[in-house]
């Protein structure tokens, strides 16, 4: 029987080892972490320290090779690929450094796509898409394709897409990595707002300014959490 203890995610001693021809490589080693609703967490550390791998495990993209990962009390390692896909679709949002918007779809269609996959009725998803585009300040650009948007606008559409199915957890991997300082600041503010509205947020970033907006900052090195700073 699953118990949630109010946690969105509970990771107990999770590791991720990649088998390589030259020998196994441990990307994440023995990490324990709890994410509660409304948490604002930043994960930082040098390149190759395992930040993105940890984020992908927390996002149920790849299961840990050791340890226990519970999402709202359910053991992720015991879910099938299909079940993990459904869990990501309905409960987790992803924001990528390179946005990965579909270039042949308009901004509105990109936001509508995950809802369509989740079988949200057409009228309802139209309404939700409109609301989300207004939320990220892009209602006027709904009919524009990604090629007609700036980098900041594309990332805002990507955030709207990540929020499409109203997830409890939003994961962002270097969300400002491809943006200039001013635009990055706007995206950081938008993510703060998303978090303030109740969505737990985990950001992987190299940017100290972005990390310092979080209430918990996890520093990683060599696949382990070296330290955790908590602010009020």
């Amino acid at each position: 029987m699953s118990t949630t203890n109010g946690h969105v995610i509970e990771a107990r001693n999770i590791s991720r080892v990649f088998p390589m021809s030259a020998g196994p490589v441990t990307a994440v080693a023995d990490v324990s972490l709890e994410i509660r609703p409304g948490d604002h967490i930043a994960i930082r550390g040098p390149s190759g320290c395992g930040k993105s791998t940890l984020l992908h495990m927390l996002g149920c993209v790849e299961p840990p090779t050791a340890g226990t990962l519970l999402f709202r009390g359910d053991d992720v390692t015991k879910l099938s690929d299909r079940q993990r896909s459904l869990l990501r679709l309905r409960q987790i949002g992803f924001v990528f450094q390179r946005f990965f918007l579909l270039p042949m779809l308009t901004a509105a269609e990109n936001v509508e796509l995950p809802q369509s996959e989740a079988n949200v009725p057409k009228a309802e998803r139209r309404q939700r898409t409109q609301e989300l585009l207004e939320y990220v300040g892009l209602a006027a650009r709904a009919a524009h394709r990604p090629s007609e948007l700036s980098g900041g606008e594309m990332q805002r559409v990507a955030i709207a897409r990540a929020l499409a199915n109203n997830p409890g957890l939003l994961l962002a991997d270097e969300p400002t990595g491809e943006l200039d300082r001013a635009t990055g600041e706007q995206i950081a503010s938008l993510l703060d707002r998303v978090n303030a509205d109740g969505t737990a947020l985990v950001i992987v970033t190299h940017d100290p300014a972005l990390a310092e907006r979080s209430t918990r900052i996890l520093s990683m090195r060599d696949g382990r959490i070296e330290s955790e700073l908590t602010s009020a």
Binding site: R82, S85, I92, E117
Partner: peptide, 10 residues
Amino acid sequence: AALRALGFSR
């Protein structure tokens, strides 16, 4: 890969 991460099934 992004679509799969967003929850699109295989």
